[in-house]
Simulated scan of single mutants.
Amino acid sequence: MIEVDLNFKKPSERTRTIMLEAAINTDYASKRGTEYIKLAEIEISNITSHEHVKIVNSGNSAILAAMSNFKGKILIPDQGGWTGFKNTAEFLGLETLELPTELGVINPTVFAEYIQEYNPEAFFITSFAGYIAEQPIKELFEICNDNGVILVEDASGGIGDVERRLGNGDNSHIIVASTGSPKIVNVGNGGFISTNDNEFLKKSKFILKTLRADPVTCAGIAEEIRNASYISSKTIEACDIIKKELQSVIHPDKRGISIALKTDDPKKVGYLLRQRLQADRRSIITVCPRYERVMIDAICLEIKNLDPGCLEEDTINEIIQIVKGIIE
């Protein structure tokens, strides 16, 4: 029996209204459609601090556009990354190297030694390792700059960071992101790529045009991205509160938008939690080992999947009590 009232993340009511109006009144060729696309690019540029932006139909399309620029080795984390990094590199015939991490989190010293030894052309990383722990993006970016490596940050989970450590173009050569469900900027589909070096976008011109987003998606992004900082901070705050009350938390002292807990029997624990914790009949539990989270026995509470409006004190406390009753 479900004992806590949770809502799965959805676009704001205003965003849904704007997307409906765009669907009725615009197309690619219309002046209004062009205005939606341009407005979305401006809003993304404002939040990433990158000068050049293109909007595409998914986060994986943004990764494809970015990775198509490279011919050499692609470095990715050994866990806590995104499977799209591996799959896209394989599709393009590029060699990938897996950087050893501390359950997804990168040690800058190890990173510096690794890239000096193996000389990758680009490094693809997510803002949060497995959504559960903030990566030291600025330090990694400085090391990349010193060694001629292009840092590509997948900021699907980090966009709108109020502390400006994540999703900040000052710390990334290229930012890619998904705006599908249930990302921080959630309009159900779409994604984007941003950079200060327009040559990257020029080289990917055919891919970007082929995989461009429609004006309805752009209209939604232009509005919903304005909520990113609120959604991000609310989710991180909820995770911080929950982590303080639970044992066996992986990376307990790092910011995250999901929570990973060690357990000897993740399948059983995951099953039990799914019976008690659902959001609009959708699961918020991930069972590990899993490359996109951590490669050990664990379960993840996907707080990022929840509508921030339901992340109030009473609800958070109910989540804590349910998890304690099953895991501890």
Rank of each mutant, 00 (worst) to 15 (best):
I106W: 06
I106S: 00
P108N: 13
P108V: 00
F111L: 02
Y114V: 09
Q116D: 15
Q116H: 14
Q116C: 13
E117Q: 15
E117R: 15
E117N: 15
Y118C: 07
Y118D: 10
P120A: 08
E121M: 06
F124S: 04
I125R: 04
S127W: 01
G130T: 01
G130L: 11
Q135R: 03
P136E: 09
K138M: 03
E139M: 13
F141A: 08
F141M: 03
E142C: 07
I143T: 12
C144I: 11
C144P: 12
C144E: 00
G148Q: 03
V152T: 00
E153S: 10
D154V: 01
G157T: 14
G158Y: 02
I159Q: 02
E163A: 09
E163Q: 07
E163S: 14
E163R: 13
R165Q: 10
S172E: 08
S172W: 01
H173S: 00
H173Y: 02
I175L: 05
V176N: 00
S178L: 02
G180H: 09
P182I: 03
P182T: 02
N189D: 13
G190Q: 09
G190F: 00
G190N: 01
G191R: 01
G191D: 04
S194I: 11
N196H: 05
N196W: 06
D197A: 08
K202N: 14
